[in-house]
């Protein structure tokens, strides 16, 4: 792990997770107060049902206002966005979110790789990518793209993950800037732009 530099100039924190990641978020989100200088986007593998249970569950756990993502939803600092089920979530140049129903990637839609790569193109150095617990290999290519674009990459310590495969795969192939336990992830996020 690199020295514990404080991240500054962050416009977007994008978090990818699969099996076992919701538990992590349930621990982290209540600890976060308002984060007015950047937006958070969650890309979680979820069932392709059309309800908004996940959004509601997350909204209960956090003080950060949760915005439902529809086509061309503006991405604003201070808000938390959840990628809807059965769409890929993409980023446009004018700070707008767009959606796409093209083929699944890594058997997933939303795919973490797709959103991470798209965010990396738009936000470059101003992007922090965090990959949590999961049982497949989604997210690794996305973290590589974030790194290549000059962003910061963080991976949950696989030993603290319910499903270590996804973070472990990312560590093996990407050499992330930070590998953090759950409590350190919380601390890391609160220090962004501080």
């Amino acid at each position: 792990m690199e020295k514990n530099r404080i991240i500054s100039g962050c416009k977007l924190l994008i978090i990818g997770g699969s099996a076992g990641s919701l538990e992590v978020l349930m621990k982290i989100l209540p600890g976060l107060n308002t984060l007015p200088s950047f937006a958070i986007v969650l890309v979680l593998h979820r069932k392709s049902t059309e309800d908004t249970t996940l959004e509601e569950l997350i909204a209960i756990k956090t003080n950060i206002p949760v915005r439902e993502v529809e086509d061309k939803t503006p991405l604003l600092p201070g808000y938390l966005y959840v990628a809807p089920s059965d769409y890929h979530l993409l980023f446009e140049k004018n700070d707008v979110l767009s959606l796409d129903i093209s083929e699944k990637v890594n058997y997933s839609r939303p795919s973490i790789d797709v959103s991470f790569e798209s965010a990396a193109e738009i936000y470059g150095k101003s992007l922090v990518g965090l990959l949590l617990s999961g049982a497949n290999a989604d997210g690794t290519e996305g973290l590589l793209a974030i790194k290549k674009a000059g962003g910061t990459t963080v991976v949950q310590n696989p030993e603290s993950a319910q499903m270590p495969t996804m973070p472990q795969n990312a560590i093996t192939y990407t050499a992330p800037d930070y590998i953090l336990d759950i409590e350190h992830i919380l601390k890391f996020i609160t220090l962004i732009n501080s």
Binding site: L90, F91, E92, K93, S98, D100, S102, S118, I122
Partner: peptide, 9 residues
């Protein structure tokens, strides 16, 4: 066309 998706395609 929305650029993000078009570029990916």
């Amino acid at each position: 066309y929305s650029r993000a998706s078009l570029k990916r395609r």
